[in-house]
Design a protein around this nucleic acid. Structure first.
Length: 816
RNA sequence: GCCGGGGUGGCGGAACUGGCAGACGCAGAGGACUUAAAAUCCUCCGGAGCAAUCCUUGUGGGUUCGAGUCCCUCCCCCGGCACCA
């Protein structure tokens, strides 16, 4: 009897050996082609759950596969370590965020090591350490220098729970992306990055192998729309502005304007409001200020607004039109003002009906001309009531009217974007300090590069008050102006943590480089990332910011490429009882007990086997024992002595079939690996091991040939079950390590079938399955099919109308 | 409301460009081994029927010699977007 498979003992032993030998250390001297395989770095929440394994396990398998194929693979790991949760947890427990974070990292590193991945831990990156955030701050200065960072007062998203502002991307359905608190608005002076400069480029994904879904989400987020800015005339004594600009995508309907609507925050509101309307307008503006994002965005809510008492003039037809305010008009989009065309816009129509404003038809469809409009007409048609443009097709009229307006200098064609600049200030402690200094004489001054990092003080009181805790830390705040040497104050807000994760993958290429954020030579060698895997929830956050970052660096001449991630793959989510796993729900599945029981190799294999990686699935451990049993069976197949036919005998009945199945398996597994179809890859390996078991039973090949098949199986399985295969490999006496072995290659010739199944149908129904030679001719196939007694039973006495032949697959006999 | 993705046995899922529906695994049933149990091994396992055979990929229709796969209608689930003028 051989010793039993003992995963726990084996895994600990090999993990130690691999670490001692630095087996997975990246060899910078290697001349092999590089392969940068990256998994999104985890946030330091405290524990690795099964979802982390689902993200890390299969990506490690793929990286190992590439490694065995001869690539020089960089597959690093690190920690996204700044952020509110650390601070919140620390406050709750009365420990310092740094202590809490670092102890979580220790625990998570231990758990990550139990996966048995090829991470080169010498390259670990931790974003909250000064040697890292020094460079985060440096990038801030670079962006500032390039004119991409600026300070501005604007209405911003405010999370009352986090007591901090949020970027637009971080507001999900009007709620904070982290804590799901409804977001409110505040007017604050904040730091922004000019991501809008790259709007057009960010909506294109040329040459990128990314999921369609993510590309669409990013393009929608940019929200480009082409239209025309049109100014309406104003004439009020004492009001300096003589026009109001609106943005419209429907210049063809400009003769249908019957009123105008301004956002409550529009700067002209106060100036234009008549004394009679003042009270109502002010009340409305005040009410709008206090609405949460959710209330404001709700499409269910009936639109309301108030009249300002003022009028503007439509220059095209001289009409005097009333100016209203309503909160369905957003101050941040277009010009913050819209021309209302109730005849051809649903929102304007509803608003006009509610307040008894006139509806004017200016685009007529062919059958409805002249009737009173019962709803806004959005379709194509011909212009009416539009002066000299009457009779023109409305799509043509867009250009014609725009030109007419441009000629008279009443406006111009322009493009609007939904995308807003990235707000990066956070009024919290646990983040990288923004390296800016406010000097009473010199104004806002950047911290000189030589003074970086601006260290986060250890002794801050970090309770969230809505203002940065650093504000009250005198040792931090008070400084000297680098320009004039006079007393000055430091910026006390910290940076959005997405800033830290926008460039971490660059740091992995030279994690200890002291002279810069990265070593330019090594960056050139490794970047861009060849495959990036992670959850889809970062579509318009992390992934979007990272692309902006790289484009900005490219324009500064710091990098030579324009996209960070060549191929992107989103694994699905592992749920528990069909719900998202979360600590608050208490349904988090901890992998440690499965690892301790059955081993990491079984957990890795099982997670890959449950279904397509992009699909995710609901956690159910009932199938995991099947994978454990399978590895045990292979243990026996490989290590139990095999008694086959004698060596050197030339009559070896099973060899040809075994070779064919072996080469077919190599082909299937290699192709599935490339497609990241791990579930079918494992099925193929299972079928192969089942086949070897049959050969073993029959003893139909020589010992050498049997062992050769087992060697192939082990190598194909090595990325999936690294410890298990290393152990078996070593027990069989093969050279250490299996992970330095070459990935098997297949021969099309050996994989070819000599005989193939031929399906015979009568009227499309399967009546016979024949086994025929793989090089059968059409005539022969048709003859064999029609001669079959089973087929004859169904064709007897009937007229054969047609015989269809699909080469090497099927014969269908059509009878009547 | 709009845009994606999906709906296949008791369960997870497989099926390349239209050609054997249900690979592989789980659960279940029966058997072998055992004093017994566990483990392991073997057999069966979509439904109806004694059988030949018939039915079966969310629903209804269509194209085709042939449809899980293509086209149209409707229903349900998941993800995203949602007053952007």
């Amino acid at each position: 009897m051989i010793e039993k498979y003992n995963p726990v003992e084996i895994e600990a032993r090999w993990q130690k050996r691999w670490a001692d030998d630095k087996l997975y250390k990246v060899n910078e001297a290697s001349t092999a082609p590089k392969w940068y395989a990256l998994t999104m770095l985890p946030y330091t929440s405290g524990d690795l759950h099964i979802g982390h394994w689902y993200a890390m396990g299969p990506s490690d398998v793929y990286a190992r596969f590439k490694r065995m194929q001869g690539y020089n693979v960089l597959h690093p790991m690190g920690f996204d370590a700044f952020g509110f949760p650390a601070e919140n947890a620390a406050i709750k427990r009365g420990i310092h965020p740094r202590v809490w974070t670092m102890s979580n990292i220790d625990n998570m590193r231990r758990q990550l090591k139990s996966i048995g991945a090829i991470y080169d831990w010498d390259r670990e990156v931790i974003t909250c350490l000064p040697e890292y955030y020094k460079w985060t701050q440096w990038f801030f200065l670079k962006l500032w220098e390039a004119g991409l960072a600026y300070r501005s007062k604007a209405p911003v998203n405010w999370c009352p729970t986090c007591k901090a502002v949020l970027a637009n991307e971080q507001v999900v359905n009007g709620e904070c992306w982290r804590c799901e608190t409804p977001v409110t608005r505040r007017d604050l002076e904040q730091w922004f990055f000019k991501i809008t400069k790259y709007a057009d480029e960010l909506m294109r994904h040329d040459g990128l192998d990314w999921p369609e879904r993510i590309k669409t989400m990013q393009a929608n987020w940019v929200g480009r729309s082409e239209g025309t800015e049109i100014s309406f005339a104003l004439d009020y004594p004492g009001v300096e502005e003589k026009e109001i600009k609106v943005f419209t995508t429907r210049p063809d309907t400009v003769f249908g304007v019957t009123f105008m609507v301004l956002a409550p925050e529009h700067p002209l509101v106060a100036k234009l409001t008549s004394t009679a309307c003042k009270a109502a307008v002010e009340a409305y503006v005040e009410k709008a200020r206090h609405h949460t994002e959710i209330e404001r965005l709700s499409t269910e809510r009936e639109k309301d607004g108030v009249f300002t008492g003022a009028y503007a003039v439509n220059r095209l037809d001289g009409e005097k039109i009333p100016i209203w305010i309503a909160d369905y008009v957003l101050a941040s989009y277009g010009t913050g003002a819209v021309m209302a065309v109730p005849g051809h816009d649903e929102r304007d129509f509803a608003f006009a009906k509610k307040y008894g404003l006139p509806v004017k038809e200016v685009v007529a469809s062919h059958n409805s001309a002249g009737c009173e409009l019962k709803e806004a007409f959005l379709g194509p048609g011909v212009l009416v009531n539009s002066s000299s443009f009457d009779g023109m097709d409305n799509t043509m009229a867009k250009a014609a009217i725009s030109e007419y307006i441009e000629k008279r200098d009443w406006g111009k064609r322009t493009v609007s974007y939904k995308l807003r600049d990235w707000l990066i200030s956070r009024q919290r402690y646990w983040g990288a300090p923004i390296p800016a200094i406010y000097c009473p004489t010199c104004g806002i001054v950047p911290v000189p590069e030589a003074d970086l990092p601006v260290l986060l003080p250890e002794d801050a009181e970090f309770k969230p008050t809505g203002e940065s805790p650093l504000k009250y830390n005198e040792g931090f705040v008070n400084t000297i102006c680098p320009k004039c040497g006079g007393p000055a104050k430091r910026e006390t807000d910290t940076m959005d943590t997405f800033m830290c994760s926008s460039w971490y993958y660059l740091r992995y290429t030279s994690p200890h480089f002291a002279a810069g954020a990265f070593d330019p030579e090594l960056l050139k060698k490794w970047m861009p990332v060849d495959i990036y895997t992670g959850g889809a929830e970062h579509a318009v956050m992390h992934l979007f910011y990272s692309r902006f970052f790289i484009k900005a660096l490219r324009d500064m001449g710091l990098v030579t490429f324009g996209e960070p991630f060549t191929r992107l793959f989103n694994q699905g989510t592992i749920t528990a009882d069909h719900q998202k796993m979360s600590k608050s729900k208490g349904n988090v599945v901890n992998p440690d007990k499965y690892v301790g029981d059955l081993g990491a190799d079984t957990v890795r294999s099982y997670l890959m086997f449950i279904g397509p990686w992009e699909q995710g699935g609901d956690w159910d451990d009932s199938g995991i024992y099947g994978l454990s049993r399978w590895l045990n069976r292979i243990w026996g197949l490989a290590l139990e002595p095999y008694e086959g036919i004698g060596c050197g005998g030339n009559d070896e009945p099973g060899l040809e079939d075994l070779l064919r199945v072996t080469h077919q398996t190599i082909r299937r597994v290699s192709e599935d690996m490339d497609r990241l179809r791990f579930n079918t890859m494992i099925s193929a390996l299972m079928e192969f091991s089942n086949y070897i078991a049959k050969v073993r039973e029959a003893g139909s090949v020589t010992t050498d040939n049997y062992r050769s098949a087992v060697r192939t199986l082990l190598r194909l399985l090595a990325p999936t079950a690294p410890h298990f295969t290393e152990e078996v490999w070593s027990r069989l006496g093969y050279e250490y390590s299996i992970h330095n072995q070459k990935w098997p290659e297949w021969s099309e010739k050996l994989a070819e079938n000599r005989e193939i199944p031929l399906i015979v149908q009568v009227n499309g129904k399967v009546r016979e399955k024949l086994t025929v030679s793989a090089d059968i001719t059409e005539a022969e196939a048709k003859r064999l099919a029609q001669e079959s007694p089973k087929v004859k039973a169904h064709t007897e006495g009937k007229a054969v109308v047609q015989v269809i032949y699909v080469p090497f697959k099927l014969v269908n006999i059509v009878v009547r």
